[in-house]
């Protein structure tokens, strides 16, 4: 174990890249000088204690950080090589990125309309195509069997675990290239969590998955690469096996062995 090492693996043609990114909310820094790359079609895990900047990182990817009035972003956030802050159509970017939050959110529409929301905004109105798309997304989110007979129920009336899978189905409905999950298993039961984890392993063939989690074991199970953040800094990043079994940094070791956080 080497203490305080800063070795970073070289990622060729990363799907998502951060170059010297510093984000602050007013005077408070949330991310300091982050540089990393996330490879395509892999699950990229992000671990770290609370307030280490993990959620902020995700918000930079799809530019929902813009909605926080006091935020300022320096450096370059790149998706497919393009700086997202220079994109003209930010809505297009957000359609390319699917986001799942910690707390399940069912929109006050029918289950069907929940999943059909994004396609409708994108211009898809053909009923037959929508039906197919809704079913496909619900199947992928392992929710279809439970709701197929009650697609007209209000999304807000589903259970917490079902609403979280509904959120996943919504995220998949606009066919994202990148799927971001922010501590998705906090408010749901272990069985649902396991189901979703299996889905993620399948989905990574079609998209790049960024998985922020406070469950260290979850990252160990799912992620191909893992990054460890602490106090708004990137401490270590690399293949999951290496980060867990032979971390370069003492802090990383402490965290993955349950020392703090």
């Amino acid at each position: 174990m080497v203490k305080g090492g800063r070795w970073r693996p070289r990622v060729m043609d990363p799907h998502i890249g951060f170059e010297n990114v510093t984000v602050s909310y007013g005077p408070q820094p949330a991310l300091r000088n982050i540089t990393l790359g996330m490879p395509r079609n892999q699950i990229f895990g992000i671990i770290g204690p609370a307030n280490s900047g993990k959620t902020t990182l995700l918000k930079c990817i799809n530019r929902t950080i813009d909605f926080i009035g006091t935020s300022s972003v320096k450096g370059r956030v790149l998706v497919d090589g393009e700086d997202v802050n220079r994109l003209r159509n930010v809505y297009d970017l957000r359609r390319r990125v699917g986001m799942v939050f910690p707390l399940p959110v069912g929109l006050p529409l029918t289950v069907y309309e929940n999943v059909a929301y994004a396609p409708r905004r994108a211009g898809l109105f053909d009923r037959h195509e929508l039906d197919e798309l809704v079913e496909k997304c619900l199947r992928q989110a392992v929710l279809w069997d439970e709701v197929k007979d009650r697609l007209q129920t209000l999304g807000t009336k589903l259970s917490g675990g079902q609403q979280q899978r509904l959120t996943l189905a919504r995220a998949l409905s606009h066919r994202p290239e990148i799927l971001c999950l922010d501590e998705f298993s906090i408010a749901i039961d272990p069985v649902t969590t396991m189901k979703i984890e299996d889905v993620l392993l399948e989905l990574k063939q079609d998209m790049t998955i960024v998985l922020v989690t406070n469950l260290v074991q979850q990252a160990h199970r799912l992620a191909d690469q893992t990054a460890f953040f602490n106090d708004s800094r990137l401490i270590e990043v690399g293949p999951t096996e290496k980060v867990f079994d032979e971390p370069e940094n003492q802090l990383t070791y402490d965290y993955v062995t349950g020392g703090f956080g």
Partner: peptide, 25 residues
């Protein structure tokens, strides 16, 4: 399902139903 039918989400569909025109406007 193949990816062909799913691509139709990203490309604007060809149908010009009045609802779609309304929403576009």
């Amino acid at each position: 399902m193949s990816s062909a039918d799913i691509d139709s989400v990203q490309a604007p569909p060809r149908s010009r139903s009045p609802l779609r025109v309304f929403h576009m406007l």
